[in-house]
Computed example of a mutant assay.
Amino acid sequence: MDILHFAEHMPETIRQRAVKRVFRPGEALMRKGEPVTHVYLLTSGATRVSNEFESGHRYTFAQIDAPDILGDLEALSHQESYATTNEALTQCTVYALTIDTFYAWLREDNAFAIRVAELLAIKMYPTSDENGRIKFLPSVLRLENYLLHRIGGVDTDLFVLHTGRQEIADDIGTSVKTVNRGVTKLKEAGLIGLSHGKITISREQKMKIAEDLERSE
């Protein structure tokens, strides 16, 4: 059973406390750093998940499509603030549950509790698997992997990365010095370009980076 089933058949005691809300495209369901107050059952629409850094840059790294749950990780791990920003990509309909209401539903409905645990496992496994693989890659390959993820599905003849070297180093778990060495190696290999110090990647270079990563597996 998916979350839409549970949303349609939630216990009456929970339904009385749930608030149905609609978010328009661009509106934030939650923002990174804000207090964790609600868990949202996303019953229609899609959201984009992003992380914001002190430099002001925003990195969008995922899309969540209905039906799904938002804020469950923070609620179940007793975090005080949301870890990411989640904005409506399309018009989204949700059931907003306070943390107390969410826990009450878990205690009252074993099937719902099991489904929430399954969804969390589905979300976390790819991250754990990817992080474990990336951790043991040489620094240059970690940089290549990072660059491909930053490009994502962006369709452009020339991608310009505006992220600073320190931020890149923080994201891939290395030093700025190592990042600079990696940038130099990739540029010398023709896999990236530089424009006023910023990394640029053409369509052809993107394909070559992907091929280089495939050969390393």
Rank of each mutant, 00 (worst) to 15 (best):
I201G: 05
S139F: 11
Y95P: 02
S50I: 01
G193N: 09
Y59V: 03
V140S: 10
S128C: 13
L137A: 09
K198Y: 07
H78E: 12
K20W: 03
D171K: 06
K208A: 15
Q79A: 08
V19E: 09
I114G: 13
R115A: 12
T13S: 07
L148V: 12
E108K: 05
Y95K: 01
V94K: 00
M1W: 03
I168W: 01
T174S: 08
E87R: 11
L73F: 14
S216M: 05
L73T: 14
Q79C: 08
R107D: 14
P25K: 02
K123C: 10
F53N: 08
E188G: 01
S202P: 02
G26P: 09
D157N: 13
I209D: 12
D212Q: 14
V39D: 04
G164D: 10
W105H: 12
Y95G: 11
F6Q: 01
A189F: 03
P35N: 02
K135R: 13
A113L: 00
E34Q: 07
T84F: 15
G164V: 01
P25A: 09
I151N: 00
P67R: 05
H38N: 12
S81V: 14
Y59D: 12
R48E: 11
A66Y: 11
V39I: 10
A169S: 07
I151S: 04
A66Q: 06
G190R: 06
G164P: 01
A121L: 07
A18V: 08
V154A: 12
N110F: 04
H196D: 15
R165W: 00
T178L: 02
T85Y: 15
E108I: 03
T174F: 04
K198G: 05
I14L: 04
R150L: 01
Y125R: 15
E8K: 11
G71V: 01
G173T: 03
I114Y: 11
L70F: 03
F23S: 12
F102R: 00
N110H: 05
L191D: 07
G152V: 02
A96R: 01
L41Y: 00
N86S: 10
E74F: 05
L158K: 01
A117M: 15
